[in-house]
């Protein structure tokens, strides 16, 4: 057992490659045999990842899912921000400039519309649940933008730590739901071409959610959605503690 642990820990990233590879193999097998290809293999793999993250978090009490389990620590590196961004940029290889230009204006509109709409929805829900403090309402609204915008806005405004935790939770729920829900609604919302993928990325904004949601829908759309999504958090951090807080403060 000790030998096993030594080898696994010393080669954590390699273990992660193997574990993820087996997970994807199982997922594609299930997708083909049990759902007849109706559900994309990567959608199943992502769902399995999230379920594993839940049990990993429950078992260890940590904040990074299965990566807190000693033997699977490499998952943390493999699925961390550095590798994610590196692979996302690589998906842009082969993208034609013309496709990006076509959705240019709609893409920019979608980023601002996405931040403002998610903020309003989050803020209204906070008010419905009885919050009246403008700082709390703004922080929770910002959390519905992304789980990064929430704490950035909250700490800028001096929100209490339980409100900030709440905003992070709202952002995490959003991210997870985008991962799982995107392939289900893709057809209904016309998510089948580079232009709508750019609008989708701008509206959803959560980089992890968009990255996983589009991968499970159609990997060809990933670079377009990811391109706009990466501007979203920056715009959210810009608007949250400034204009949006001023408006909330004036209204409450």
């Amino acid at each position: 057992m000790e030998i096993l642990e030594t080898v696994f820990v010393r080669n954590s990233l390699i273990v992660a490659f193997a574990v993820v590879g087996v997970t994807i193999w199982i997922s594609y097998f299930v997708a083909h045999k049990l759902t007849n290809g109706r559900i994309h293999g990567s959608a199943i793999a992502i769902a399995l990842g999230l379920i594993a993250a839940y049990f990993g978090g429950k078992a260890t009490g940590g904040s990074t899912g299965v990566a807190d389990i000693t033997l699977l620590g490499g998952i943390g590196l493999m699925g961390g921000g550095m590798m994610r961004d590196f692979a996302i940029v690589a998906t842009a290889f082969g993208v034609k400039l013309g496709e990006l230009k076509k959705a240019g204006i709609a893409g920019v509109i979608s980023i601002f519309a996405g931040v403002i709409v998610s903020f309003i929805v989050g803020a209204v829900v906070a008010i419905l649940y009885g919050h009246t403090d403008p700082v709390a309402v703004t922080t929770i609204g910002a959390g519905a933008v992304t789980y990064i915008v929430g704490p950035v806005t909250g700490s800028a405004l001096g929100a209490s730590s339980d409100i900030i935790a709440l905003s992070v939770a709202a952002g995490l729920i959003k991210s997870i739901l985008v991962m799982i829900g995107t392939p289900m609604v893709a057809k209904a919302i016309g998510l089948n071409n580079p232009q709508s993928a750019m609008v989708f990325g701008g509206l959803m904004g959560t980089t992890s959610g968009v990255a996983a949601g589009l991968a499970a829908t159609d990997p060809k759309l990933v670079p377009y959605g990811a391109m706009t999504a990466t501007f979203y958090t920056g715009v959210g951090c810009l608007l949250g503690p400034s204009i949006l807080f001023i408006i909330v403060n004036a209204l409450l």
């Binding site: 999230l50 990074t64 996983a212 990997p219």
Partner: peptide, 20 residues
């Protein structure tokens, strides 16, 4: 990209999301 996204899903703080 997809394997990395699967690893990313596996390291999300899913517990915190539902404890909110």
């Amino acid at each position: 990209y997809i394997p990395i996204v699967v690893a990313m899903a596996a390291r999300q703080n899913v517990v915190a999301a539902f404890e909110g």
